[in-house]
Amino acid sequence: MSDKKSYVHVIREKWCKGCNICVAYCPKKVLTLVNGKVFAERPHDCIGCRLCELRCPDFAIEIREASAVPEPEEETTVDYSIPPEATHA
């Protein structure tokens, strides 16, 4: 079917601990572990159900629709030019 959406798998390897939850629960077996880190082996099979994203205990995987445009960053009332944890000059 031509209108099948395709998805991008954003993986934060530093945060992933290779717990295998996402791999085990992906309904389409898209994911696998490589060197203890999640890897999208068959990204084109992904149906965007986001179970991996929802269940990931480490926020290490994010599913984005290939065509999706990122949401605008909503302005906040407080100016954070320097994040609170900035190291002092």
Binding site: S81, I82, P84, A86
Partner: peptide, 10 residues
Amino acid sequence: AAPGGYRPYE
């Protein structure tokens, strides 16, 4: 004075 760069235990 302001939040930016606040280090609470400095």
